[in-house]
Amino acid sequence: MLGHIESITVYVPEQRKSLAECASALGLSALDVRMFARFYGLESFPRQPGSVDDLMRALLEQFVAAHADLIPRIRHVVHAHTVPALRPFDQSGRALLDTCGFSADTEYCSLTMGHCATSLPAVEYACSRLAEGEYALLLIGEKAFHPRVELIDDTTIMGEATCAVLLSRSGDRARVTARYSAQAGEFNRHEGNEPSNDPGFAEAYFAFISAGMRSAAQHFDCALDAMDWIAPHNVNLSSWQKVADELAIPRSRIFLQNIPRYGHCFGADPYLNLAALIRGRQLSPGDRVMLVSVGMGATFSSLLVEVPAGNEIPVFCNLKQYPDVRPN
């Protein structure tokens, strides 16, 4: 047992860019747009003007409003992000905690080396530092601030939806029972936009993620087709449909409905998908959910989350109308 997820707070900027608007800014061709829409299932992307601190402050203020009584018991705050440096080197995210009322002795750090997969092993790291009765807060979110960050060629476009995941060492909410990670070090210099004459990681991706999921299932002692849900990173529809077919997983068990809503929101995707499953009442007591992500570099990571009886995870979202969950 690694820890427990006590709540998930989701902040989604109300402003959006359509696929057409992003395509124009990124210099995508008409053929690219058809591919992103028809095969990859991308439609629109949340965007908030301002800095990463403006984005994360909105998330933290929403979290504090819902958890005011717990703030003094949060001993660690961990920001998992993809881009190695979010701010100028003389600035720290710690300042955000001070403005939002966190204790002066709350420890703050950031994790990044797994890129988009960083937010999953971050749960084990944060929970390992807790004493009984203490909490940790995992923050996930960043800005698509530059075309080299906003676009992964022939793959996806980034969104800016964010999550704050409240964690405990022991509790009565969702149990995080195991983690599995793997690396492919030969892609350590991969930056996401490889030249077309050096496809590298793109060619190896499906074998890498398929092997990672098989190994994770073996580590979790649970067959892939016995998982009730898979909450993946939201790269695109076609890649996950191909993985599902390769691994003989029913496509209906991979939650893909957030791809057209948000695009690929860096490391927040698996938690956005878990939150949507909870709010859509798609989970039953005893269900097992596999959270999965792949980060450049290349890192595969996954968590096994088990749903207890009678203690649904609270989900807080700033959207006035949370999207309904429809069958895939």
Rank of each mutant, 00 (worst) to 15 (best):
R94I: 02
R94Q: 15
L97M: 03
D98Y: 04
S103N: 10
S103V: 04
A104E: 02
D105C: 08
T106C: 15
S110C: 10
S110W: 09
L111I: 13
L111F: 07
M113D: 12
G114H: 06
G114A: 15
T118W: 01
S119N: 03
S119G: 15
L120T: 06
L120I: 06
A122F: 05
V123R: 05
E124Y: 01
A126Y: 11
C127E: 05
R129A: 06
L130V: 14
A136Y: 09
A136N: 04
A136D: 11
A136E: 07
E142F: 07
A144M: 12
F145P: 00
V149G: 04
L151R: 14
T156R: 01
T162S: 13
V165F: 11
V165M: 03
V165K: 13
S168C: 04
D172S: 15
T177H: 10
Y180E: 11
Y180L: 07
A182H: 07
A182V: 06
Q183H: 07
A184W: 07
F187N: 06
E191K: 10
G192W: 02
P195S: 15
P199Y: 01
G200T: 14
G200H: 09
A202D: 13
A204G: 02
I209L: 09
G212H: 05
S215R: 15
S215K: 15
A216Q: 08
A217T: 03
D221W: 01
C222A: 05
C222F: 05
A223W: 00
A226Y: 00
